[in-house]
Design a protein around this nucleic acid. Structure first.
Lengths: 117, 117
DNA sequence: AAAAAACACCTTGTGTTACAAGATACTTGA
DNA sequence: TCAAGTATCTTGTAACACAAGGTGTTTTTT
């Protein structure tokens, strides 16, 4: 309960912790419906305690697209700025399945460690 | 169920996924008892599906020490090579608590996303 | 007794990623 | 009119996991 928390350390750690995790969560979000980048940022804020910067999401989506896990399509809006919608490909779905198993098994391990104390 | 999994992608992702996570798990492991580096590697292999390289753990432990989350002490063995034992400090304990809350809340969020599909 | 494997520590260089900070451009509301 | 919101993108930086290398000791195998 001491209050000597090094916020700089925590901030740095949180940033590191997101690496890989964001990729997983984005794919999970896209499983339910196609989304555009800006939308994913607000979904993220709504569903999780995670914040994701714009400078993070757009390169991330490009990586996923280059790896063929998602596909994208421009959507002209009646009004407003055009949106680039991303959706999960079949490849993305099967990769997500592998990732899900990995995450689930890790969660089990961590639970076991926490209980072993 | 397709078998067109890009193992290179998965390997890369797993490596990224460990960032921050390893720090958390190491602190979790040290909560139960002091450990030396080489021991933590085998505990990791035993308790989790994670592999942690030597080139990862030693710099990691040094970072934790520099941040004052752990302290270290050389232990001369009756037989065998001297070991450097690490143990959680009070600062480490309170930081671990903050990290635990973050991880737990993220887990809840992910569960919610998975269920919302 | 010699060789190999395991124990136990460490460092350097590389690749990947999150993010701050910036840019662009359209739309809405004060 | 002018700020704030929507929506995209890029560049440069800091941090970390890991391969690959190193040192030296102890134990096991041949």
């Amino acid at each position: 309960m001491s209050e000597d928390i090094n916020l700089y350390f925590i901030t740095k750690w949180k940033s590191q912790f997101k690496k890989g995790l964001l990729e997983y969560i984005i794919l999970l979000l896209l499983r339910s419906k196609p989304c555009y980048g800006y939308e994913l940022i607000s979904e993220m804020n709504q569903f999780t305690s995670l914040e994701i910067a714009e400078g993070t999401i757009y390169p991330l989506l490009n990586r996923l697209k280059k790896e063929n896990l998602v596909s994208s399509e421009w959507a002209e809006m009646d009004t407003g700025i055009p949106r680039k919608y991303y959706k999960l490909t079949e490849t993305g779905t099967s990769h997500l399945e592998v990732m899900k198993e990995y995450v689930d098994s890790l969660n089990l391990s961590i639970t076991r460690i926490k209980e072993s104390v």
